[in-house]
Every structure is written in structure tokens, then in C-alpha cells.
Design a protein around this nucleic acid. Structure first.
Length: 403
RNA sequence: GGGUCGGUGGCAGAGUGGUCAAAUGCACCUGACUGUAAAUCAGGCGGCGAAAGCCUACGGGAGUUCAAAUCUCUCCCGGCCCA
């Protein structure tokens, strides 16, 4: 039997780090339960609707891992069924429905991406992975009606998202209305003690609490975690909005994406996405040395996903190419025929999105050959350009091999 | 089923016959500055073209007009009201 850690200090470190925003019914009861030594079953669900993940997802897995390390059973639930229905959360209009194949591909991708965040090799208490297709797809219409009878239309309508939609005269599809039911049934099917969710998911999680109580007379805790919104803009990390730090990028890019976060995000990311102790974070004096703190942050997070060696290389790359504006060591060689136009090269190399984009970059002084700005749109590569470095923007380099 | 309002660029959201490749904000790109790929500032942000300009684009299709995102018809999708 897995032993549960009841060290209050360790428990507090998890509960008070800032990741957890709210615990229902109360934090006190939850803490009491954690201290009791009773082994609980935690879960967090993800609808694998997108092909990629960002740090805001990552911090959820990291928190779950903390509870696992305390000795509790943890489940990562892939909402492969619910993903295809589309949860209304956060979307101003209904999300498009995905095929089973789409979702399967996403799930496989995600499993790879979250590997560094949880110890799946722990023999004694490994995190479990489940799929809600396994039970949700088996429900028949009668079952669904039975579940639905536990709620009133008015209760469902209370959800803030639905209120908002009605106010904005935007559609609420019936299947979205049933979404809380499905997520709620997940709790019943897995018979969990605790559900972790983003604050935007509290309504759904509470539906599960209601169901669990009605069907199994069990009290489920809901642990709501921060969405890590930007304190300045209120924006969330989001693929469709082009914001966020994504997990499937190279170490260099990850390091860079973190450095491009606003200074206001530094502390939030330290708290949620690193394992640094609270007093260690305090010692960094973030507001005094935002750049240095951010570099440390970028290093810590990159390390998690790419390992120490790669992370340090990324930092080195950043210092040299961005801060010192040097040419990096391993510049990709490209073979170019004499007389080739610069504009064509930029497009072919993906250094510009289109001919127009390439032209813009040249016009704006963003294209250099051996650090000399190219201003001639018609510039062609000559034989004496052999070995020179073509640079577009701040960090896109190619070495020309002219023949 | 009837009435009515609406469907705009990666997102949000203006525009309601020409001055619209379409305001503004976000995202993005380039430059300047800088102890940051931060903040700030400047410029840019459909495609082709050296440019003039041309082409494609405001849910789909068909029209009216010298001229349509804007008007008409029709189809698809949605909101609201009525049934």
C-alpha cells in the first residue's frame, strides 16, 4: 500500500504556492483530509482539442505531480470523447467538432509532451492515464436522460459562460449544455475524491460533485487552479490568439519565448512552472533584476523540457545572438546559384512568408549580408558573397555557399 | 413554420453604394532604444510587381449599377420574438 505523506509543511507548500486559487467546498476540509493520511484519488481532465500544449497546461500536470509525490493516486484523463463535443468554456462561440482521429493524434502528441512533467516510471505509484471515451461512449439515451434529471435547466443556465452568451445573443448549442453532465459523469465513472481544474471549469467540476453526491453519496473536492492570465492584459495563453509558450518547440525557441514574456509574468511563471522553493524565488528580487530573473526562469523551464545541457546552450545562444548580436556558430549552410535574387532566397528559406513580406523586410532594413544592410530589392548574389552570412530580422541566419 | 436582426482579415470588432485591401485593439513582423526576444517609441502587417498598377478578398451562388463588404434574389449558418 502506497504511503501518504502528511507533513504539514510539505502540504502547505503545495496548497499555498499560488497555483491553487480556490478549493471547494472549503480549503480547511481539504487540508484536513490531506493531513488524515487517507489516500485520495485525484484527477484532471484535458480535452485534447489542440495539437499542442503550452505552459499553462504544463503547470496543471506539475501540480498533479505534487499530489502524486504526496502519495496520492493521480489520473490524467484525456477527454477523447468530450473533446469531440466541445466545451463552451472560454470560447465565444461553439468550437468545431473533431473526429476521433484528430483527437487520437492529439492525445499521442500530448503524452510525449507531458513526459518530462510527471514520473511515469514510478513503479509504486505511477500516474494513470484514462480516456473518457471508455465510459461516455457506452451511455445510451436513457442513461443520459437519467443523468440530466439530476439538474434543472436553471442550474445549467447559471453558468457564467452561458449567461454571457445569452447577453451577447450568441448561440448555446444543446450539446454544449450537456457538457457539464459528461464531465460530471467522469467523476462518477472514475470514482474520484478530488478534481483539479482551471477556474473556468469550476462549474463543470461542481456538476461532477453534485452527481457523485447523488449517485454515490460521496463528497468530491474541487481544486481550482489559476489560468495564469497576464496581469496587465488579462490575456490567457492561447494558440488561436498567438500567445503563449509552447511545449513542442526547440530549446532555443522556448528560452526565447520565455524571454519575450512581459516582466509581469516572471513571478507567475516561477511559482507555477518551476520547482524553485518560495524563499528561493524571493531571493531573486524579481522587480530589481527583471532581466536576470527572467533569464533564470527561461533556464529553469527550458531545463525541464530539454535537459540541462540543451537549456544552457539555449541561454548561451540567447546571450550571443540576441544580447551581443553575434552570429551563432551552427548557421545552416545553403547552396545558392550565382545571380539568385535575395528576395527569392528569403522566401525559399522560409525567412519571409511571401515575396511581399520579403520585400517589406528588406525595405525596413531587416535584411543583412555580413552585417551590411541590404537596401536594393533587386540585389543578386555574386560569387564574392560566398561564405557570407544572410540575416533576416534578429535571429534568422543562413550561410551562403555560392556556386 | 412566420417575423426580424445578423454572418467582415489569425482573434476581437468598426464600416452599411465610390475616398475600402477595409477603422481600432490584440497577436504578428521590421527598426530604434535597452542590462530582456520586456517596457517604450517609429514603421509595417492579402498576393504579384522596381513602380504605376493589377489580381484575389468582407458566409456560398446569381443579379442591379459606370461602381457593391454595403442594394436585390437565392442558398447555407446563427441570435431574438411569435407559433
Amino acid at each position: 500500500m502506497q504511503k501518504v505523506i502528511t507533513d504539514e509543511k510539505k502540504i502547505d507548500e503545495v496548497l499555498d504556492r499560488g497555483t491553487i486559487v480556490e478549493i471547494l467546498p472549503t480549503k480547511a476540509e481539504f487540508k484536513k483530509k490531506l493531513l488524515s493520511g487517507e489516500r485520495m484519488k485525484f484527477y484532471i481532465g484535458f480535452d485534447a482539442t489542440a495539437a499542442t500544449l503550452h505552459l499553462s497546461h504544463a503547470k496543471n500536470f506539475m501540480l498533479l505531480e505534487k499530489f502524486r509525490k504526496l502519495g496520492h493516486e493521480v489520473i490524467v484523463l484525456f477527454g477523447d470523447f468530450t473533446a469531440r463535443i466541445g466545451d463552451p468554456t472560454g470560447e465565444s462561440s461553439a468550437r468545431k467538432q473533431l473526429t476521433r482521429e484528430d483527437v487520437k493524434a492529439n492525445v499521442e502528441r500530448w503524452k510525449e509532451l507531458i513526459k518530462p512533467l510527471m514520473n511515469f516510471d514510478d513503479a509504486k505509484n505511477p500516474p494513470l492515464i484514462k480516456y473518457n471515451h471508455d465510459w461516455l461512449s457506452k451511455l445510451n439515451f436513457e442513461d443520459i436522460i437519467g443523468l440530466a434529471s439530476n439538474f434543472t435547466v436553471q442550474q445549467m443556465l447559471e453558468r457564467d459562460m452561458f449567461q454571457k452568451r445569452m447577453k451577447e445573443e450568441k448561440p448555446i448549442h444543446l450539446h454544449e449544455f450537456l457538457y457539464p453532465l459528461m464531465q460530471g459523469y467522469d467523476s462518477v465513472a472514475m470514482d474520484v475524491d478530488v478534481e483539479m481544474c482551471g477556474t473556468d471549469q469550476i462549474f463543470n467540476a461542481l456538476a461532477g460533485r453534485t452527481l457523485l453526491k447523488k449517485l454515490k453519496n460521496k463528497e468530491k473536492f474541487v481544486v481550482a487552479v489559476t489560468l495564469m492570465e497576464d496581469p496587465k492584459t488579462g490575456e490567457l495563453m492561447s494558440k488561436s490568439k498567438g500567445t503563449g509558450i509552447f511545449l513542442d518547440v526547440s530549446a532555443n525557441d522556448m528560452y526565447g519565448q520565455i524571454m519575450s514574456q512581459t516582466d509581469e509574468m516572471i513571478e507567475i511563471l516561477f511559482l507555477n512552472c518551476t520547482d524553485l522553493a518560495l524563499n528561493e524565488i524571493k531571493l531573486l528580487e524579481i522587480s530589481k533584476n527583471p532581466r536576470d530573473a527572467k533569464m533564470r526562469l527561461a533556464l529553469e523551464i527550458s531545463k525541464k523540457f530539454h535537459g540541462e545541457v540543451e537549456a544552457k546552450k539555449a541561454q548561451d545562444y540567447f546571450i550571443r545572438t540576441i544580447q551581443n548580436k553575434e552570429v551563432p556558430e551552427n548557421v545552416k549552410n545553403i547552396e545558392i546559384k550565382r545571380g539568385k535574387k535575395i528576395l527569392e532566397i528569403l522566401v525559399e528559406q522560409g525567412m519571409a512568408e511571401s515575396g511581399s513580406d520579403a520585400k517589406r523586410k528588406v525595405k525596413q532594413g531587416g535584411v543583412k549580408l555580413d552585417n551590411i544592410v541590404i537596401s536594393d530589392l533587386q540585389k543578386e548574389i555574386l560569387s564574392q558573397d560566398n561564405g557570407k552570412i544572410l540575416k533576416a530580422g534578429k535571429r534568422d541566419f543562413r550561410k551562403l555557399i555560392v556556386n
